[in-house]
């Protein structure tokens, strides 16, 4: 396993940030701050945020942050959301569940291309409103062809059109993710439950990962996201739907702020056709395993060797 695929714990234990330096980070700053933060642990979170600059904490990689550091950072981001967006949000650091690896399957015989999944993603994940961003793109494809290049995303006629089928595409949470391999600062990695995450506070916005993804599943925040306070989803995760800063990459996390709590992803619940099946690949009794065993599933661009956790199938 390459350094890029290290499990989170190994990184925490090593405490060696040599390979993780970014923006000219100084190791000594991180060390001092750990102690300072600990001393402050008895004070309420709100008072910390006033006297310690969060930038100093963010000099540490996600996987090196102690729980105390994380509490501080979460409180800071909550205050920031209040200040900049006027919204009361609750941000948590959701951890992968033991014995769980997520898988997703989509029935192309049933999907009608209504784009309600893309819309649900937009709302759930606090995407920028004016640009209509979403982690899901729905391709209208000619029946009989699987050439993604021919897919049209701009259709507005009633669906389904009898000559077409519809293929929603989002992050495939690959087991061999090229996006992770190309990141120069390790701001993106694959977690134990299979989710490829981005630390928005660590990302430098070089967009190599965007170019490396064969499914065009990554998005770049060109501008500071604009969302009216009343539309902000307050149920947020550090690695998922917290409001991203300008200039960083973002991507689908299978709604880890929901799914790591046992809930279904927003796009699945929004689907009016029941085309989506989600669950734990490690549980032989799960719905997703049933699909893998009983339907002829396929993955997109199998030849590029990405080993997706996202499957498609047709009813036969």
């Amino acid at each position: 396993m390459s350094e890029l695929h290290r499990e989170p714990e190994t990184v925490e234990e090593s405490g060696d940030s040599g390979g993780l330096s970014r923006r000219g980070m100084l190791k000594v700053v991180g060390a001092t701050l750990g102690a300072a933060a600990f001393a402050k642990a008895i004070a309420p979170l709100t008072t910390w945020a006033k006297d310690i600059s969060v930038d100093e904490f963010l000099q540490k990689h996600y996987r090196e942050l102690s729980p105390v550091d994380m509490q501080f950072i979460l409180a800071h981001f909550e205050q920031e959301a209040k200040k900049t967006y006027g919204a009361d949000v609750h941000i948590r650091d959701h951890k992968p569940q033991e014995g769980v690896k997520f898988g997703y399957a989509l029935n192309l015989s049933v999907c009608i291309g209504c784009r309600r999944c893309a819309e649900a993603c937009h709302k759930e994940n606090n995407h920028d409103r004016p640009s209509g961003n979403s982690y899901i793109r729905v391709l209208e494809m000619r029946k009989g062809s699987l050439d993604l290049g021919q897919g049209n995303v701009n259709y507005t006629h009633p669906v389904p059109d009898p000559d077409h089928f519809y293929m929603p595409v989002q992050c495939h949470q690959c087991d061999a993710p090229p996006c992770v391999d190309v990141c120069p600062v390790e701001a993106t990695w694959k977690e134990k439950d299979g989710i490829v995450v981005v630390d928005y506070s660590w990302c430098i916005g070089c967009r190599y990962c965007e170019a490396a993804c064969p499914y065009h599943a990554r998005r770049f925040n060109w501008k500071k996201p604009q969302i009216p306070a009343e539309e902000i989803n307050p149920d947020q995760g550090y690695l998922s739907n917290r409001i991203r800063p300008q200039g960083v990459m973002e991507k689908c996390t299978f709604c880890l702020h929901r799914t790591r709590d046992g809930r279904l992803p927003a796009c699945l619940e929004a689907c009016p056709t029941g085309a989506r099946v989600f669950g734990n690949l490690l549980d032989p009794k799960s719905e997703i395993r049933w699909v893998l065993q009983n339907k002829r599933v396929f993955v997109l661009k199998e030849d590029v060797g990405t080993k997706p956790s996202f499957f498609y199938f047709f009813d036969v």
Binding site: R263, L264, E269, R276, N294
Partner: peptide
């Protein structure tokens, strides 16, 4: 098998309940 008709709620039933749509909903 949970592969037709969709659902809302939890994939992990140990953590939450689930509602299934019925055939005539759709």
């Amino acid at each position: 098998a949970g592969a037709h008709g969709g659902m809302q709620g939890s994939w992990d039933l140990s953590k939450g309940g689930r509602v299934r749509n019925t055939c005539t909903d759709c």
